[in-house]
């Protein structure tokens, strides 16, 4: 049996303590030495680690900047290389991940880009930007259902800033895509939603009118041109659109009125203004309508006289 395990006898306490003292001292010394060694090693490691981490961060920034420069200069292949390297040094940098996925898409590596975005999507399925990029990739791969699904997810997804405008922009992009696919029924539904949220500015109202014209809903288009004209009675673009649309609806009196006002307003307005070709087209249409009206009046006079 060891000393420390001996039963304590009355009167033997002092002897026992003194016999244990060297052992305790030695253990204390061991603990103290090990603590000192650990502290010294920790300090060295910390120093190395901080220096190493700072260097990695600097490298990540350097390669991110290279990637951005390459993207701006339309050199997506270089951007992919630089951004991949940046991500080696800062693997969790989300902006670099998004940029890399975007660069892969721009470099024509659609499959890789899609995979990358899908991985990012797994982590943030409600991200507006990721869904938009996936929609564009699906669009370029002719996967219409996927594209529409991602566009919608993007519209209802979260955006870092300027969310209202970004969502409206995505909806308009979806609308154009649907128009390109000749899916005018779905496009009209999207357009009605977009119109209900449109800003009360002549520019936004003209945009809505143009979209309604594109999907063939001329009455709605004329209504939206009318709203723009009521907000800005001398807006040449609104007057021009309204005139052209009214003409297509065979409403010659209103068409002539709008076109006349558009041609009169155009020279006095610096912004927005009609292009030369628009003015020429308006003038030609106005002349045609006036001639038709004159012909119709003559024909009506002849008919009246013959009776």
């Amino acid at each position: 049996m060891q000393d420390s395990e001996l039963p304590q006898q009355p009167g033997s306490t002092n002897a026992s303590v003194s016999s244990r003292r060297p052992g305790l001292l030695r253990e204390g010394l061991i603990f103290f030495t090990l603590t000192l060694i650990t502290i010294a090693l920790f300090a060295v490691t910390l120093l190395l680690f901080r220096s190493f981490s700072a260097h990695r961060t600097a490298l990540a920034h350097q390669f991110t900047a290279q990637g951005l420069t390459a993207l701006a200069a339309s050199r997506p292949a270089d951007a992919v290389l630089a951004l991949r390297t940046a991500l080696e040094y800062a693997p969790d940098e989300r902006s670099d991940q998004l940029l890399l996925a975007q660069a892969l898409g721009e470099a024509g590596r659609t499959e890789e880009s899609t995979q990358y975005f899908l991985t990012l999507w797994d982590m943030a399925p409600g991200d507006g930007f990721i869904n938009l990029e996936l929609a564009r990739l699906a669009r370029s791969s002719n996967h219409m259902d996927d594209a529409i699904q991602y566009y919608r997810a993007s519209i209802y997804g979260s955006w870092q800033s300027n969310a209202v405008d970004r969502r409206r922009g995505v909806r308009m992009e979806l609308l154009h895509y649907l128009e390109d696919q000749h899916d005018f029924t779905t496009a009209r539904s999207e357009l009605l939603i977009a119109a209900s949220n449109a800003a009360h500015t002549p520019a936004a109202e003209i945009e809505m009118a143009i979209e309604f014209t594109r999907i063939g809903d001329l009455s709605a288009a004329l209504t939206w041109y009318g709203k723009a004209i009521s907000d800005d009675p001398r807006n040449p673009l609104a007057l021009d659109g309204a005139g052209q649309t009214a003409a297509q609806l065979n409403d010659a009196p209103h068409a002539m009125d709008y076109l006349q006002r558009a041609l009169e307003a155009a020279p006095r307005r610096s912004e927005p203004r009609l292009t030369e070709s628009q003015r020429t087209a308006d003038a030609a249409l106005l002349k045609q309508l006036q001639e038709t009206e004159i012909e119709q009046r003559k024909a009506a006079g002849r008919e009246h006289r013959s009776r």
Binding site: T38, V44, T45, L48, F49, F52, F63, T85, Y89
Partner: peptide, 26 residues
């Protein structure tokens, strides 16, 4: 603790050497 610290140093050493020898962009 000491092994953990040495392994951290070991990993840093590998990364530093990789940077120095093979460059930042492989």
């Amino acid at each position: 603790i000491i092994s953990g610290l040495l392994v951290v140093c070991f990993r840093i050493a590998i990364e530093w050497l990789s940077l120095l020898l093979l460059g930042a962009q492989r």
